[in-house]
Design a protein around this nucleic acid. Structure first.
Lengths: 210, 210
DNA sequence: CAATAATTCAAACGTATGTTTTAATCATAC
DNA sequence: GTATGATTAAAACATACGTTTGAATTATTG
C-alpha cells in the first residue's frame, strides 16, 4: 500500500452506501464499519461527511465528464467543419452512452452511476449543490448544441425536453425501474447496449417531436 | 372546528416539508413547530412518523389514483367496444394530465405532486415501500394497456419505455428541472397546459419510436 | 537507532432525533 | 354541574448522529 488504502476503502464503501440508501440515511458509523476502518478515519482523511461526498463525486465524475464533454465538442466541431447541423441523436448519444457504459468500466462504477442518478433528484440541499456544480456546465453545453441541432424549435421547448430526457436517463440510472415483480414472465434483464439504444431512440424521438 | 384541525395542520405541513426536504431530513420537531402544534401530537394522532407519511399519501393519492384508473379503463373499454387499438397518446395522457393538473386543484396539492415525484426515486426503503404499494397497480394497468396499444412491440421494450416515461414525468414533478439559472434570457416559466402537451407528445413519440 | 511525522484507535462530546410519559386542559354527555 | 373521555402540553427518555480528543501505534526520515 503506497500511502494507505484507508481512503480508497472509505470512498468505495461510501459510494456504495450513498447510492443505496441516500446521503442523509447513511451514517459514518455504517460506512466505517463496513469498510473495516475506524470511525474517526473519515474526519481525519476527508474533514467531514460532506467533504467525503464531494470526494466521491470528484473521483469518478471528473473522468466521466471529460469523456462526455469531448464527445459533445467533437459533434459541434464536426458540424461546424462540414457546415451541417448536429444530429439530435448524436448529441443525446454522446451523453447517454458514456454514462451508461461507465457502469461496466470497473468495480464500484455501477454504484456510482446509481448515485448520480439519485443525486439528480436529491432533496437534500447539500447534495444538490455539490452535485449540480459539477454537472451544470455539461448540461448547458448539451442544451446549447441541441439548440443548434434544432434551430426552428423554441429554446424554452428544447429546455423542457432536455429535462424530460434527463429524467428518463436518471430514472434508469438509479435502477429504480424495477418496481420489483413483473407479470406474465416479463424478463426485465436486458443487456446494457440494448438499453442504451432504446433510451437514445426514445429521447431522440421525443426531442424531435412536434 | 368539527373535531380538531390539528391533524389537517400536521398533514399540510408534513406534505410541504417532506416534498421540500425529503422524509429523513424532515424532523417531527420542525413539522410541529411550523404547524403550530405540540410535538407529541404527531404520535398521538398518527402513531409514528412513518404512519404520518402513509397518511399524507393516503389523503391525496386515493382520489388521484381513482381519476387516473378511471381514465385508463375508459380507454381500454372504448377500444374494446369499437374493436380498435387504444391510442398510445391517449394512454399516456390519461396518466400525465390528471397528475400535473392536480397541482392546480387546491392548496398544498402542488407540494404533494413534488413529493410524489421525489418518492419515485427515493432511496429510503420505508418511503419506497409505502409509495410503491400505492402506485404499482396503476403502473401495471398502464403498462398492460400500452401492450395492447402496441401489439407488435416486445413487452420488455414497452416495459423499459414505460420507465423512461415515468422518469421524464417524475423529474418534472419534482421541479428539479430548474438547474437554477438559464443563459441568454430563456424563460423557463411555462403554463402547465403547455408542459403537459409537450410531455405527452414527448413520451408518445418515444414510446412509438422504432 | 532515535526522532519525527502520519495514521489508527477507543472513548467521549454535544446535539438532534423519534417516542413515551404524566399531568393539565378542553369538550361532551348525563 | 359534574363526571368522563379526548386532546394538548411540557418534560424526559433512549438512541443515534457527526465530530473531537488524546493516547497508542505505525511509518518515515535523518
Amino acid at each position: 500500500m503506497g500511502q494507505s488504502d484507508t481512503k480508497e476503502k472509505i470512498l468505495d464503501t461510501a459510494e456504495k452506501l450513498f447510492a443505496k440508501k441516500g446521503f442523509h440515511s447513511t451514517s459514518l458509523r455504517l460506512i466505517t464499519k463496513e469498510a473495516g476502518v475506524n470511525l474517526a478515519a473519515v474526519n481525519y482523511h476527508f474533514g467531514s461527511k460532506e467533504s467525503l461526498l464531494e470526494a466521491v463525486f470528484e473521483r469518478r465524475l471528473n473522468p466521466l465528464n471529460s469523456i462526455r464533454r469531448k464527445r459533445l465538442k467533437e459533434i459541434r466541431d464536426n458540424a461546424g467543419k462540414t457546415g451541417t447541423l448536429p444530429s439530435v441523436e448524436d448529441v443525446l448519444r454522446a451523453v447517454i452512452e458514456p454514462t451508461l457504459k461507465f457502469k461496466a468500466s470497473g468495480k464500484g462504477a455501477e454504484n456510482f452511476i446509481a448515485l448520480v442518478g439519485r443525486s439528480m433528484v436529491e432533496p437534500n440541499e447539500t447534495v444538490l449543490r455539490i452535485f449540480q456544480n459539477r454537472i451544470r456546465p455539461l448540461f448547458l453545453l448539451c442544451f446549447e448544441i441541441l439548440c443548434e441541432a434544432l434551430p426552428n424549435m423554441p429554446k424554452e421547448t428544447i429546455f423542457l425536453k432536455t429535462h424530460f430526457s434527463v429524467g428518463a436517463m436518471s430514472h434508469i440510472m438509479c435502477e429504480r425501474g424495477k418496481m420489483e415483480v413483473l407479470p406474465d414472465g416479463i424478463n426485465p434483464v436486458q443487456d446494457m447496449d440494448n438499453v442504451i439504444d432504446l433510451l437514445v431512440r426514445f429521447v431522440t424521438a421525443g426531442m424531435e417531436s412536434k
